[in-house]
């Protein structure tokens, strides 16, 4: 499946500055894995030793994957995955 991934600005330096990147996979986990393979540097920002960093939210289309099947959530062609890190500036 070809899925678009929305890249937050702090990570765009690892993906040639692009706001949207295409990646392949049948689940959210596979898509993010493919993204990490294509763009080294993304992986360690998204994951720590135990999985997705808890302050990084991932949405499939509009829905938080924590309320779907987490990283095992299946994706289909044309879906949009958004990576949204928690920010706190004011």
């Amino acid at each position: 499946m070809a899925v678009l991934v929305r890249i937050p600005i702090p990570l765009r330096r690892f993906v040639e500055g692009r706001p949207l990147v295409e990646a392949q996979g049948g689940t959210v986990s596979e898509v993010l894995g493919d993204l990490s393979l294509r763009y080294p540097g993304v992986h360690q920002r998204l994951y720590d030793g135990s999985g997705l960093r808890p302050f990084v939210n991932v949405y499939l289309n509009e829905e938080d994957i924590r309320f779907l099947a987490g990283e095992q959530t299946p994706v289909k062609d044309g879906d949009l995955i958004s990576v949204v890190p928690a920010i706190a500036g004011g």
Binding site: I9, E62, D64, R66, F67, S82
Partner: peptide, 20 residues
């Protein structure tokens, strides 16, 4: 609802925040 604003792309989008 979480409104996300990207000034570089001048785009907004929205995702859902559910009560956990």
């Amino acid at each position: 609802r979480l409104l996300l604003f990207d000034a570089l792309e001048m785009e907004t989008h929205e995702v859902r925040i559910r009560k956990n």
